[in-house]
Simulated assay, not measured.
Amino acid sequence: MVETMKKDSWLTLIYKIPSEPSSKRVALWRRLKGLGAVYMQNGVCMLPKTDRLIRQAKLIENDIIGMGGEVLLLDATAMDAGQQERVLERFTDERNDQYREFIGQCEAFEAEIAKEFSKNKFTYAELEEEEAELQKLQRWLEKIRALDFYDAPLSSEASAWLDKCEALLDGYAQRVFEEQNPNP
């Protein structure tokens, strides 16, 4: 179920935590990024305002206090269309960066399949390895999509690349089956 999000209202988390141990600072950053937060500056991030993210932000607020930190969790609304556009741009830019990285890995997958064809390497072991790589790509794209709150432009290109990778693996698998079982 996809939650509806207003495009002019967000949660803003402003925090300060002790610099040591740094592992707590890194864990907090990862947790916030894992929710899809965009950082406006150090210690200031924004999230779409949804029921789920409000709950998660409240849990994070408690954790920051438990670390001996300071935190403000605010409801932020864009003052005008320009402000709204800048915030939405930050969210879509971050997702597009992730989609670009994903597409790069799809290109690498395509090159790997081409290499196997050029070497005539059609084994079950190689097929299993390529299948595992494709599954990683599928899970990765699901994770990006889950954080793509505002439909970043590269979403459809990333989906097309995944479809292409799936088709490439299907073609490779067919060839492996033909080579391994020449007389079906």
Rank of each mutant, 00 (worst) to 15 (best):
N62I: 09
R90E: 07
E179L: 10
L169N: 04
E126T: 03
A173R: 14
T4N: 12
A167G: 10
R30I: 03
L137W: 03
Q41C: 08
R145P: 07
N96R: 04
R90V: 05
M79Q: 11
E110D: 13
K7Y: 13
R30G: 02
A37H: 04
F149Q: 00
Y172F: 03
E128M: 12
F122K: 00
E128Q: 14
P153Y: 10
G34K: 01
T4C: 11
M79L: 15
Q105Y: 10
E129K: 14
E70T: 07
L134K: 04
D93N: 15
I17D: 07
S156R: 10
R100D: 06
Q174S: 12
E112S: 07
R25K: 08
E129L: 15
E107C: 08
C165M: 00
M40W: 07
A173G: 05
L147F: 02
Y172R: 02
R52A: 12
R86F: 13
W10P: 02
E61C: 11
E107K: 14
F102M: 01
E89C: 11
L169H: 03
C45F: 01
I17Q: 06
Q83N: 11
A146C: 05
L59G: 06
N120E: 13
A57F: 02
G43F: 00
V38F: 01
L162A: 03
E131C: 06
D63R: 14
A160Q: 05
A76G: 04
G69R: 06
Y150G: 07
E101Y: 09
D93L: 15
G34V: 00
A152C: 06
G66N: 04
W140E: 05
E70H: 10
G34C: 00
A76M: 07
K143M: 07
K58N: 14
P182I: 05
F177W: 11
E107N: 13
R145V: 13
G69F: 13
T92I: 04
E112F: 12
E107L: 14
I14A: 02
L74E: 07
D8C: 01
D8R: 04
D93P: 06
E85M: 12
L28R: 00
D75I: 09
A108Y: 11
A167Y: 13
L28S: 00
I54G: 07
Q83S: 15
E157K: 10
Q56I: 03
K49M: 13
D8N: 00
Q56N: 12
M67W: 07
L168H: 05
E157Y: 09
D170W: 11
L147T: 10
S19E: 12
E179R: 11
L47E: 02
F117I: 01
E70A: 07
L141R: 01
D51G: 13
L11P: 03
K16L: 10
G82N: 15
A57Q: 02
R52Y: 10
Q180C: 05
G82C: 14
L53H: 06
S19T: 12
E129M: 15
L32N: 02
